[in-house]
């Protein structure tokens, strides 16, 4: 540890060496960080699809649903982390608080996105589908949802990128993920600046955010071939 401290400040690229030295731990945290960022978005989407559909289908449900989700999204992440365990009757420091809190955020964001995406489907299209004989459920999955995909994936990109940043915050209250690198760096910098873990953490977080964003973008492309047709015309 002491030798590391000595060589640290000399080279701005030392964080790479630091990474090699702590590969196992860092990759473990990267994995934790990845699933903590992704799973809540998937959960959020699965919950938001029926909720967003309800908000569209029954207009009375829209205002209260938007108020509640807006309210939940207003609560700062760190506050939600510490409030979840007592509210759900869990241990104050359960590892579940982060995925639960992030699922709540993702759902809150995506309900609005799904409702607005479905709202943007042209009425004529919905009526045409009905006239062609689609039943409500089939119409939803085969017509309305595909058309709403661009709006929904735009929301997913925001949710995923935001999650990567929020998960790191959980590192400061001792939960395992890339945020622990900042905790480490800060602890090691008490007497003299020690950058490698901090810079490494930032780089890995940014890369993770970019990769996840790109994956959502690719899924969006794959699901909406008709938009490319328009573009290439």
């Amino acid at each position: 540890m002491l030798t590391l401290l000595d060589s640290a400040s000399s080279s701005p690229w030392y964080f790479f060496g630091y990474f090699l030295d702590h590969r196992a731990t860092d990759l473990g945290w990267l994995w934790d960080h990845t699933w903590l960022s992704v799973v809540p978005v998937v959960v959020g989407l699965l919950l938001a699809l029926p909720l967003g559909w309800l908000a569209r289908r029954y207009s009375w449900a829209y205002p209260p649903m938007m108020s509640i989700t807006g309210l939940l999204y207003t609560i700062p992440s760190i506050a939600l982390f510490v409030l979840i365990p007592p509210l759900l009757g869990l241990d104050p420091l359960t590892p579940l608080q982060v995925p639960i809190a992030l699922s709540i955020y993702s759902t809150s964001l995506l309900v609005r996105v799904v409702a607005d995406g479905l709202g943007a489907v042209p009425t004529e299209t919905v009526q045409a589908a009905t006239a062609l004989g689609y039943r409500p459920l089939a119409r939803f999955f085969r017509v309305e949802l595909p058309i709403a995909v661009p709006v929904i994936t735009a929301g997913l990109r925001v949710a995923v990128v935001a999650n990567v940043s929020i998960v790191a915050v959980a590192g400061t209250i001792g939960l395992d993920n890339l945020g622990r690198l900042f905790d480490q760096g800060y602890t090691l910098s008490v007497t003299e600046p020690y950058y490698p873990p901090i810079v490494l953490g930032i780089v890995m977080c940014v890369l993770l955010a970019l990769v996840l964003d790109a994956i959502v973008l690719l899924v969006d492309r794959a699901l909406t071939p008709w938009r490319r047709a328009v573009r290439s015309r």
Binding site: S165, L178, F182, I198
Partner: peptide
């Protein structure tokens, strides 16, 4: 800039 982890930027 939104992709930057805020806590990391703060500590740095």
């Amino acid at each position: 800039v939104r992709a930057l982890p805020t806590i990391g930027a703060l500590v740095l």
